[in-house]
């Protein structure tokens, strides 16, 4: 607040400058720029330096050149982390997003009562922090007492199937457990974006398609899909970026470990273990750069495909 108060003096005296005032914009930007330079730009530059060092805690560093990156390429644990993270990401793309889109379509059927309340309810899990949801799911997936096994047992009993209460979600079915938990957390969140995008679908085009005799599936692909494509691209990119940074869910569910046989090891979990358990901030930074490069490549691909579609449409 003190930064804001200090600003009034010089800025108002130069108020005659109007939109081209020299000092005012910089004074407005100052608080942001100072924090941004110190805690975003500097760490970003420093992460390059660190990634070429080995550290023993934050104080002691040793220059090692590119050997962290070379080590990473031959580090089996890193590849396991990359594989797990990729599987989880594909899971959230191909399971989560279709469900989210389907729910959004159902939610936007004309004449539905209580739509905004349903949307609010389905959105609410994404307000729960991942740490807290992870606490919940850690117990939901317990053997015997957990909701997952007890619920499945109760639901399958009428079909004559006896679900084993000792089904080991956290022991053998690690990836399923992670994907199911993230489904609960984020389906409603993604649905909200699709649902907002569906407002852009032109009603007159849909009606014209009906007149032309197009069935619901045809209407979906020729009218709805092109209208929601830009938002869909954004949602896909957001999901990829979010999924690749998976950390809290496995970290909490598996008690600060990477799970049985490292099956819950993710890239950020490995980064955390190296940086803050082993104390090698250098290697952790190299892992950070590997992650950043993967995500930048994904963002680049998304931009290119979006641009390609625009060019194709024009």
């Amino acid at each position: 607040m003190s930064a804001g108060a200090a600003k009034t003096g010089p800025a108002s005296s130069s108020a005659t400058g109007g939109f081209t005032s020299k000092s005012a914009p910089w004074l407005f930007l100052a608080p942001f720029l100072v924090c941004f330079a110190l805690f975003t730009v500097y760490p970003l530059v420093q992460s390059v330096v660190l990634s070429m060092q080995t550290t023993f805690g934050p104080g002691a560093t040793k220059f090692v050149g590119l050997s962290n990156y070379r080590g990473l390429m031959h580090d089996p644990l890193f590849w396991i982390a990359l594989k797990n993270t990729a599987v989880y990401t594909l899971g959230s793309l191909f399971i989560q997003l279709p469900i989210a889109l389907g729910l959004a379509l159902v939610l936007e059927t004309p004449g539905l009562k209580g739509r905004s309340w349903i949307r609010l309810l389905l959105f609410s899990p994404s307000m729960v922090g991942v740490v807290f949801a992870s606490m919940m799911f850690a117990l939901i997936f317990e053997k015997q007492t957990g909701l997952a096994n007890q619920g499945l047992r109760a639901m399958l009993a009428p079909l004559g199937i006896e679900w084993n209460l000792d089904f080991g979600w956290l022991q053998q079915h690690v990836m399923s457990a992670l994907i199911v938990a993230s489904l609960w957390m984020f389906v409603g969140f993604n649905m909200t974006f699709f649902s907002a995008a569906l407002q852009n679908v032109r009603k007159d085009l849909l009606e014209a398609a009906v007149v032309d005799g197009a069935g619901p599936i045809r209407r979906f692909f020729t009218v709805t899909v092109p209208a929601i494509r830009p938002v869909a691209g954004f949602v896909v990119l957001m999901s990829v970026i979010g999924s690749f940074q998976l950390f809290e869910l496995p970290f909490i569910m598996f008690n600060n470990t990477s799970g049985p046989d490292n099956r819950a090891m993710t890239i950020v979990l490995y980064l955390f273990q190296n940086g803050f358990e082993t104390g090698d901030l250098g290697y952790a930074s190299a892992i950070g750069w590997a992650l950043a490069i993967i995500l930048l490549a994904c963002a680049g691909i998304q931009r290119l495909t979006a641009r390609g579609e625009e060019a194709g449409a024009a």
């Binding site: 975003t40 420093q46 940074q245 950020v268 901030l281 952790a284 930074s285 950043a292």
Partner: peptide, 26 residues
């Protein structure tokens, strides 16, 4: 400034955890 802000949106948070920790230590 605008370009800087737009570019910074792309920085994944985990990338700067280690250097930020070191900075806070210093």
């Amino acid at each position: 400034c605008t370009a800087l802000v737009l570019a910074a949106v792309l920085i994944p948070a985990p990338l700067i955890i280690a250097p930020t920790y070191q900075l806070l230590f210093r």
